[in-house]
């Protein structure tokens, strides 16, 4: 049975492996610090936000270990953002190969997302070190972070498929997504905890919890770092609200993959 599946997807496996390796080698070539940048970028982002928003403006007060929670949020956001952004560009930037040889196109999008996963894993190690230094206790709840990351991955991959296919015809999607990224970053509870939204305007907090980004990050904070971090579970018991982010993520992936699949035969002539 496994053998059969392997035979069917053999070519995809081989290609995927080689593309991930290539991407890994090429990404930080000719840079002095090389792969360190995968670590440094989110760390710098964290440092900036921590100093200006947490220390000076006092955002995040009342949440235990907000520093670690902020770092985790930024690392998860960076991962999501990378899956979508790299995926969006992947088909067009591989146009040369697509026009010359026939192969399953989804491999390209999946390979860029796997590169993002590698980056994420490295970053999570740093988060874990930070957490340990700050006395965060690890428990079974910590493992739940994996579930929320997977949810974020499903959502991000769905968008990556959708945008990669749209990008072949409308390059504008790149710029539109760039603007949307800004809105999502400031709009999702990444640099501020959901607790403050709850205190400010309860309904807005519920609305925010519908977003897979906010929900996944807040849940990861709640279960992985401190139970004092509010999450959809602590502010509402409406089952629809609780399930919505998961449903949105799965539907996004199904729709994105379906759209990608239906457009992919025409990529070669449209790029």
């Amino acid at each position: 049975m496994l053998e059969k599946i392997y035979q069917k997807y053999r070519y995809s496996f081989i290609l995927l492996r080689e593309l991930v390796i290539t991407d890994f080698k090429l990404r930080y070539q000719n840079s002095v610090l090389g792969y360190m940048w995968a670590l440094l970028r989110p760390l710098f982002m964290f440092a900036i936000i921590y100093v200006f928003f947490a220390v000076i403006l006092g955002i995040g007060k009342g949440v235990e270990n907000w520093g670690v929670a902020l770092l985790l949020g930024i690392v998860m956001w960076t991962f999501f953002q990378e899956v979508v952004k790299q995926g969006l560009k992947s088909i067009v930037s591989n146009g040369g190969v697509i026009r010359k040889i026939n192969f399953p196109k989804y491999i390209i999008v999946v390979s860029t997302s796997l590169s993002a996963i590698i980056n994420l894993l490295i970053n999570l190690v740093v988060v874990a070190i930070f957490a340990a230094l700050n006395g965060v206790e690890f428990g079974w709840g910590t493992l739940l972070i994996g579930v929320f990351i997977f949810e974020l991955y499903v959502f991000g991959l769905g968008l990556a498929f959708l945008f990669a296919a749209i990008n072949v015809r409308f390059r504008d999607i790149d710029y539109i997504w760039e603007v949307a990224t800004q809105a999502l970053f400031y709009g999702s509870a990444i640099m501020f905890p959901l607790n403050q939204v709850v205190a400010f305007h309860y309904n807005s907090a519920v609305l925010l919890s519908l977003s897979p980004i906010t929900q996944a990050i807040q849940d990861a904070r709640h279960f992985g770092i401190t139970a004092t971090a509010d999450t959809a579970l602590t502010i509402t018991d409406n089952l629809y609200v609780l399930l919505a982010p998961y449903v949105i993520s799965v539907l996004t992936l199904v729709f994105g993959a379906w759209y990608f699949r239906s457009r992919s035969p025409y990529f070669a002539e449209r790029i």
Binding site: R10, Y11, I14, L15, R17, E18, L19, I21, T22, K25, L26, Q29, N30, G96, V97, K100, I101, F103
Partner: peptide
């Protein structure tokens, strides 16, 4: 097809051959 100028000859052989379906 798929040759990358930044990669070495060896790496390009593996990439190119993977596109042809070789493990």
């Amino acid at each position: 097809v798929g040759f990358k100028a930044e990669l070495t000859g060896r790496e390009n052989v593996y990439l190119n051959a993977a596109l042809l379906g070789f493990s």
